Amino acid sequence: MTPREIALSAVQAIFADFDPVKAEALLAPDYIQHNVGVPTGAAPIVGFIPALQESGIKCTIHRVISEGDLVVLHVTYENAQAFGGDTLVAFDVFRVENGKVAEHWDNLQPLVTQTASGHVMTDGAADIKDLDKTASNKALIEGFVREVLQGRAPERVTDYISTTHYTQHNPLVADGLDGLGAAMQAFAEAGQAMTYARTPLIVAEGNFVFTASEGKLGDVPTAFFDLFRIEDGKIVEHWDTLSTIPDEMPHSNGKF
């Protein structure tokens, strides 16, 4: 199986079939966990499956992006009290090694139904296209992260984001560059400026590029997981989840 197939099979076993035997066969015993509330290793995941089944949790996958041994899922979890909320929007990132899921990162945010743009946090384009442009699109986002998100040359934002159509799925930000600029100004005035310090994970496939970044929202350590869709060399659509990085976790692996 491909890394994509292995990751999807593991999610199916855990969140749909609730099959501990199948899940255990797909997870490396020394599975490295970065979820801030779950201990590391395969055993805690496998042991938690009966409780997940009893909870009635439902996982809906909206997008899948893979590159090399990394697979990114854009999902919604319903009845997700086990993860801290009724309905959560998430990005799950899996690293596959030797035919098993060996490492997992995620970022979960409560679903917001009233959004500034009128778009849902998970709707929009999903089809992967332009596979021949994967490398150039990844380079575009690497430049965007470095110059705009990390603040080295924010005035170059129009080199990266389309000035004619930019669809926004962050619930607090309206469409277009004007909507983005107004939101960033409002965040800063409220003492909630977003600062990106580093981006350990970048995964690209065709017209989609995913990034996982560490930074701050105001003074609070925060993880920013972003997904960008590129068209004709410019960013035209954006989804994200934000979550606080706690001081203590049930493992020593950190958020990243």
Rank of each mutant, 00 (worst) to 15 (best):
V75S: 11
F94C: 06
A43C: 08
G99T: 05
A13T: 15
N137H: 13
T211E: 06
G37D: 14
L180P: 03
M121R: 02
D226C: 07
L73R: 02
L149N: 11
L140I: 12
D17A: 10
D106F: 05
D130R: 06
L52R: 08
F210C: 09
R229C: 09
L27Q: 03
V38S: 01
T211S: 14
S213V: 04
E78D: 14
K58G: 13
E231F: 15
G233T: 07
D127L: 08
A125V: 04
P20S: 12
A51E: 08
M121V: 04
V38A: 04
G37E: 03
V96G: 09
A188D: 13
D232A: 15
A153P: 13
G215V: 05
E214D: 09
L52Y: 06
S66C: 10
T87P: 04
R95D: 05
V148I: 04
D19C: 08
A190N: 14
G47P: 01
P171T: 07
R198T: 13
D123A: 14
L26C: 05
P154L: 10
I65R: 09
M1C: 11
G215W: 07
C59Q: 09
A42T: 00
G47F: 00
L131E: 15
Q168V: 03
E5R: 14
P171I: 14
F144D: 03
G254Q: 01
A25P: 05
N253Q: 11
M121I: 00
F208G: 08
P110V: 00
V72T: 15
D123P: 13
E67F: 14
A223V: 11
N79H: 15
R146V: 09
A139F: 14
D178Y: 09
V120C: 05
D226P: 13
L70S: 10
G233P: 11
E214W: 08
V96F: 05
E142N: 12
V11I: 09
I128G: 06
P171G: 13
W105T: 00
Q192T: 04
S9N: 09
P110E: 13
H238P: 01
T164A: 07
V36K: 02
D17C: 10
A43P: 06
M194P: 02
L8E: 14
A126D: 02
A204Y: 14
M184T: 14
T2S: 15
L27T: 06
H251T: 07
D232H: 08
D175E: 04
Y196A: 07
